[in-house]
Amino acid sequence: MSNLVCVVCGMAVNDKNYELNKESFMDSNSIDDIKYCPFCGAPIEYLIQGGKELIFDRSSLNDNALRIIDHAVKLEIFNGDFYKKAAVIAKDSKVKKMFQALSKIEFMHARIHKKIGGFKEDPVIADMDYSKYDSDEILLEMACKREKHAVEYYEKYSKEIEDENIKKIFAALSKVEEEHIELTSKEETA
């Protein structure tokens, strides 16, 4: 493996990190078969030998586009926070690990959006208490709903974004969230 770079998040994938967050993927990366960015979850087509992060023109973002990006940051932080808290509540160790990995992926998505929008601070979100959800099945059902909402968000608002590279980032993140739908649905029946 040499110098694979994720064009979505800009992170280099190498023999020391290819297994990060492996619990958040349907199929795990192996040293000889990289399928996903271990940081943001982007599929293989976004991992480029010697690649560079997608460049976008922040100055071309109008108020509506900035609002969309700002809401995307909040969506991903809200979901990352949910997974972080769900990992503590979950009973099954496999589900706990999956939620921990999903939290890291969602927080990376928020970081990507913050960079796009040029936002320096994390938004303040409501501190939610999920302790009443006392079964893994309920937590997985909630996770699946969140992922479906994220896919719908990216699909709806990518039409309002003019920058083609930001549209590509939305498409990549939507694919990641689609896999998370499958992953959380699969775990519900496991």
Score class of each variant (00 low, 15 high):
V73W: 03
E19Q: 08
E23T: 08
P123H: 05
Y46Q: 03
K74I: 13
M11S: 14
L20H: 07
P123Y: 06
A72N: 07
I34L: 15
Y36L: 02
Y18D: 03
E19W: 09
N14Y: 09
I116A: 04
D15S: 15
M128V: 15
V95H: 00
R58L: 11
L66W: 06
S30T: 15
A86I: 05
Q100D: 03
R111W: 04
I69T: 08
H113D: 13
F78R: 11
I116N: 00
V13W: 00
N14H: 09
K91L: 08
M98N: 01
G50V: 04
L20V: 06
M128W: 12
Y18H: 09
A101H: 06
I34A: 10
F82Q: 04
F39C: 08
G51F: 04
Y130T: 07
D129H: 00
K52I: 11
P43S: 08
H71A: 12
E23V: 07
L61R: 03
D57A: 08
D15W: 10
K84Q: 09
S60I: 10
E76T: 02
D63S: 15
M108P: 00
S93A: 03
K120V: 12
I68W: 03
P38Q: 05
I89E: 01
H71S: 14
H113G: 08
D33N: 15
M108A: 03
K85F: 12
K120G: 11
M98D: 02
I77K: 04
Y36Q: 00
D32N: 15
E45L: 11
M128K: 15
F56W: 07
A101L: 06
G41P: 04
K114M: 14
K35F: 04
K52H: 13
N17M: 00
Y130L: 08
A101F: 05
N79A: 13
D33R: 13
H71L: 13
E45Q: 14
Y46N: 01
A42T: 01
K115E: 14
D122C: 11
G41L: 02
I105R: 01
G50M: 06
D127A: 12
M128H: 13
N62S: 06
K52C: 12
L47S: 04
V95I: 13
A72H: 05
C37V: 01
L75W: 06
M26N: 13
D32V: 12
S60R: 14
L20Y: 12
A101S: 15
A12R: 14
N17P: 02
A101Y: 01
A126S: 14
N79V: 11
Y130C: 08
